[in-house]
């Protein structure tokens, strides 16, 4: 009855920072390569637990290209002690990694469908692996719309990549910010206001949302108003996590564990609980 747990899922493997790039005032991207062990394969939407040795561990989504085997890429926002410690690391430094964990985006459900990605703030990072896949296998999907909202023009992640994607004629990519100075000529307003500006057939669409919970709740509403049913909407959830493997109890969201049953959930399966406070 007892199964062997090997290797120990709570022990991190050592990774070395190959590149470090600053994306925004409080956001940076690390590319990591393993010391010795093989590179862990991952699916879009999965996350790793990153350890700043001596400080602690934090759950961070993978933001790189799953098809590119050149390391594991994480885009990190400095919000707490661990991310601040990770922010202090430089090229050549080591950190710990456990993962990948969790259930990611439903890539197979996107095939043949129009795809709407609704990203808010740092929520663009967990969706970037999806974008790579959509672009690499463009003919397997219908219309593709990428709608990205963030705080201000200076907070826009992956600016150069977004510009190159926007030049493509086979996708819609719109960026909006909450407020801007007058040197910004793009959209200003909440991300949901972009929905009417892109083409998709609501009855044949799958929408993926990632961002602050409030933004996702309103995003789901706007998609619903546009005719996209809850069953075709997926959201990526976030809760406190200590183990990422369903053993520490922290990330419970009523019946589910965000770490192992999610972080990506089909909206209709959690909408009841999302509406309750302090659950």
């Amino acid at each position: 009855m007892l199964q062997v747990a090997s290797p120990d899922p709570m022990v991190p493997q050592v990774m070395r920072i190959v590149t470090r790039r600053k994306d925004a005032p409080d956001v940076f991207t690390l590319r990591l390569e393993p010391e010795g062990d093989d590179l862990p394969a991952f699916a879009p939407g999965q996350f790793n637990m990153l350890t700043a040795f001596g400080v602690g561990e934090s759950a961070i989504s993978v933001s790189g290209d799953p098809a590119k085997g050149d390391g594991i890429v994480h885009t990190i926002r400095t919000v707490g002690a661990v991310s601040r410690a990770l922010a202090g690391l430089r090229k050549g430094d080591t950190l710990g990694l456990r993962g990948p964990f969790g259930v990611g985006w439903p890539m197979e459900a996107l095939e043949g469908k129009d795809v709407v990605l609704l990203a808010g703030g740092i929520g663009l990072a967990p969706l970037r692996p999806v974008i790579y896949r959509l672009l690499a296998e463009r003919d397997r999907f219908g219309e593709v719309a990428i709608l990205y909202g963030t705080r201000s023009p200076g907070d826009i992640l992956y600016l150069r990549e977004l510009e190159s994607w926007r030049r493509r004629l086979d996708i819609d990519l719109l960026v909006t910010v909450d407020h801007a100075a007058d040197d910004w000529h793009g959209h200003v307003g909440v991300v949901t206001t972009l929905l009417p500006r892109v083409a998709f057939d609501p009855e044949n669409t799958v929408a993926l949302l990632c961002g602050p919970e409030i933004m996702m709740r309103f995003g789901v509403q706007a998609l619903g108003n546009a005719g996209v049913p809850d069953e075709a909407i997926y959201v990526s959830m976030e809760r406190n996590m200590k183990c990422a493997i369903g053993l520490c109890g922290h990330c419970q969201f009523s019946p589910v564990f965000i770490c192992k049953d999610g972080p990506v959930f089909r909206y209709d399966r959690i909408r009841y609980h999302l509406a309750l406070k302090e659950l």
């Binding site: 040795f53 001596g54 602690g56 561990e57």
Partner: peptide
């Protein structure tokens, strides 16, 4: 069964 984790470090950050 719930648990949390706590990291420790020596002053030099060598042993954690």
């Amino acid at each position: 069964f719930c648990t949390t984790v706590e990291d420790a470090s020596d002053l030099a950050g060598v042993e954690t």
